[in-house]
Amino acid sequence: MKMRPHRVWAVIQKEWAETARNRGIVWMMALIPAVIVLMVLGTDYGFVWAGQSGQDLKSVNMPVPPNLSHLPRHEALIIAMNEQFFFYLLLIPITLPVYIAAHSIIGEKETRTLEPLLASPVSTGELLLAKGFAAAAPAVVINWMAFSIVLGGVALIAPPAVLGYAVRDVWIIGMLLFSPLLALFSVMLGVLVSSRVNDPRTAQQISSVFVMPLILISLMVLMGKAFLTVPLVLAGAAVALAADILVLFLAIRVFQRETILTRWK
């Protein structure tokens, strides 16, 4: 399977140029991270205020990692809270790009741009990889921006210990490595399904079924049944990378130029 970087890049640029014209999608991608940023900073501020005004926070029932028990109660709570939000942030890029990916092949079929595209010398691998990457990247970048804004806000309003704890290898690796690979996985799933299914909504639903197990694992983490560690995140990233490659190859196998072109609408 040929992969020529300049062609992959050409398709990525084209996809981005189209996405940029579609303000709706960009806003949708930014909406959830923006809400999370506001929630993190809002609760952080609430806890800081409660701590400063000497309120009793014993009744707040939240799992606090054992290694934080030496900190003042409200600082420990802020940290525990942030940890959960950061975890959400890690997973966000798996939700929205699916939407874009689901539209990527079907969309071109509907606008009839698929035929000239497939008549060009672009290979299936180049096309699918580019489509996947192009859909995942904006969400990941928005996520990084959200993470940076939260860190900036925490530096402003929360005690220094909180920031120190947030800027931690788990989250750095998680954001830079795990989250993008996971995003790419869900996107490639979307691309794979969308090359086989006729309408975008079905494609989205089918791919979300595959994303379910991930959501279950994350619920466990959120309920305090598991804590993220560096080895865990690295292992997660490795699994995600393997899954990415697997899904890409599967998508290439499944993608049949002829069927996609000639099947009646």
Binding site: R21, N22, T111, T113, E115, P116
Partner: peptide, 8 residues
């Protein structure tokens, strides 16, 4: 059908 990218 010409199949152009209408938004470009």
């Amino acid at each position: 059908s010409p199949g152009l990218y209408r938004k470009l």
